[in-house]
Design a protein around this nucleic acid. Structure first.
Lengths: 338, 338
DNA sequence: GGTAGTTCTGGGAGCGCTCCCAATCCGATC
DNA sequence: GATCGGATTGGGAGCGCTCCCAGAACTACC
């Protein structure tokens, strides 16, 4: 069933049917209605391949997620939520979403090789990359439209991205601890090959400086956004002696909490704790976790809309969008706002 | 850059280049090498739209995930892991993966409408559906190849699926509790509009019968695979008085655990608990959770391979694949195998 | 009633591939 | 050295759509 068939049944020409389908002007109401009726009746949908071939547009966007990120790093809540936001935007604009997930058996470079070889996408969404340099440079050089969902490590002024202001958010978290009277504040970092992780360290540093508190490298333990690194990091910090800890993610904070419980340290009386993400579990933690809420769904939603705006020529890049975060105060930080 | 360009540069015809690209016989080694060299040199990749148009194959499979399932029901660990398995198989067979996630603003029917209208896919993977009847019937009628990742509610003998033997697995879980001497065993179910949930109830029932224990409807509380329903379900069961509980998912078990802790009930001394899934968190629970391990990644991987085998004509449907599960005994069930 | 301008309609060309058939080449065989 | 059959190569046709241009139909105006 093709355009010509519909045309014959409706007693018009191929061109007219095409105009109706693409909602173009210069079709009389009578003709339009007649054609629509036939289309409805036979359940016709145009052949996307034929359309792509001539328009050079696929109406497909690609989402690239390096393997480790989907389940290992961070909380598994992150990517489903991000994908949900992306899918919602794509649906609104009538685009389909092609998913590229790195697999265990290949490294990131191979993944990008496959993505670049596949010419089925109008643009790309890069959902967090660990070794972005290589890929982003190539994308920029090849003029492939793309949006990153995190601040790029390089070429920032040439790259579109949607992120949050990690520095300000981390400062909020640490300021909150300082305001609550804490003075020896430790930080269990996220992955430091990633700008989210790096910026949170920076925010931590700035907050201490603003309060004229010393920056003690021994109070900063490198982690990987994981629960395990939170557990180990907390053990290290307990040896150093701290009265508060800012964990780079809620997942990290859970690990820390476990270490604190095992050590018989009271939270928040002895050590106050602040996380980052506001995962659904945060409110169920014991004690409920003070944390930074970040709009994960919105990140995906806005990044997708930005990409589609770029593709439609509605906006011109590079664009940088920073979404707001919010400090959510619960019991773990010891502020009596419960 | 198209076939003709490559042909000109290599001094051969369009047809020969096509043969090389598609790895067809009847090309001399010398010619093949020459063409390959040119392709490498200019970084040529064939236009997928043109290819699709004539072959009527897209080399794209669709994955459909109704909205609620991606983040709300079950643990968010489930879908990332499933997708990972699917993506891995697709990659091995050189297929791309189109993702269809229901959005909040539309219901399942609308999602399926969009999927059916989009003709960009050779086949579909249905990753759990709540109201499958409508869609599966239409897919079967339209002869669209598809594989479900759960046992279908209807038309079972006409539908390809990959699942686990939920009945046997649930029996294992309950038998384990019975073997440990428990006699008043409750069950917090999963969603009962879903075969995974229904079959686990059935397994629970069969295990009791085999042990000649009475089936008491008051000891079965309907849940939704969620933590909250586990919490509420456990509270209800505590009123009934139980010495063990089989929760339909680990997430449900976490909720139950919280209710038990709050009530000051000792686990496993007073109430033994078994979950289902073996999420990474299960081992970190307090006490560590006895549970049924199910191969989520494998489910996705095998389902995708089955779909591709069907598409390639390597196998003929309908095929039913049941993957093995495994009882993982930890402290929460009170068996001293710690 | 003629003309100009607009709205509407139809059909050729071509997007870049694969498929098919015909033509050519080549070594072996008699 | 002619013949044969398989290996190799080339080019026309056509997939289903959009784009473009030409022509028809209609309207408004003088």
């Amino acid at each position: 069933m093709n355009l010509e068939d519909i045309a014959r049944r409706a007693g018009v020409s191929r061109s007219t049917v095409s105009r109706v389908i693409n909602n173009e002007p210069y079709v009389s109401d009578r003709t339009r209605a007649k054609v629509m009726a036939v289309i409805q009746e036979v359940g016709y949908a145009p052949n996307p391949a034929a359309r792509m071939l001539v328009t050079r547009r696929t109406h497909v966007i690609g989402v690239v997620i390096p393997r480790e990120l989907i389940t290992v790093f961070e909380d598994p809540y992150y990517f489903p939520t991000l994908l949900q936001g992306i899918a919602e935007a794509a649906q609104e604009r009538d685009y389909a979403t092609l998913l590229w997930v790195g697999s265990s058996s290949e490294d990131e470079d191979r993944l990008y090789e496959r993505v670049l070889q596949n010419r089925l996408m109008d643009g790309l969404l890069i959902a967090s990359a660990t070794r972005q340099m290589g890929i982003t440079r190539r994308l920029v050089e090849h003029h492939i439209p793309f949006v990153m969902v995190e601040r790029p490590a390089a070429l920032e002024d040439q790259i579109n991205y949607v992120s949050i202001d990690n520095i300000a958010a981390a400062q909020d978290a640490v300021n909150h601890l300082i305001d609550a009277g804490r003075r020896r504040i430790g930080h269990i970092t996220g992955s430091l090959n990633n700008s989210d992780g790096l910026e949170r360290v920076e925010g931590y540093r700035l907050a201490l400086r603003r309060a004229r508190l010393p920056y003690d490298p021994d109070l900063v333990v490198e982690g990987h956004f994981t629960s395990r690194s939170g557990y180990l990091g907390m053990k290290a910090l307990l040896k150093q002696g701290v009265d508060a800890v800012f964990a780079a993610s809620d997942t990290t904070a859970y690990g820390a909490l476990q270490a604190l419980h095992e050590a018989g340290v009271r939270v928040p009386e002895d050590v106050a704790l602040v996380g980052f993400d506001d995962l659904p579990r945060a409110v169920e933690a014991n004690p409920p976790l003070t944390t930074i809420r970040q709009p994960i769904h919105q990140k995906g939603y806005q990044a997708a809309h930005l990409l589609l705006d770029l593709l439609d020529g509605k906006v011109r890049g590079p664009r940088h969008i920073l979404l707001p975060t919010q400090l959510v105060i619960r019991a773990s930080s010891g502020a009596n706002t419960f």
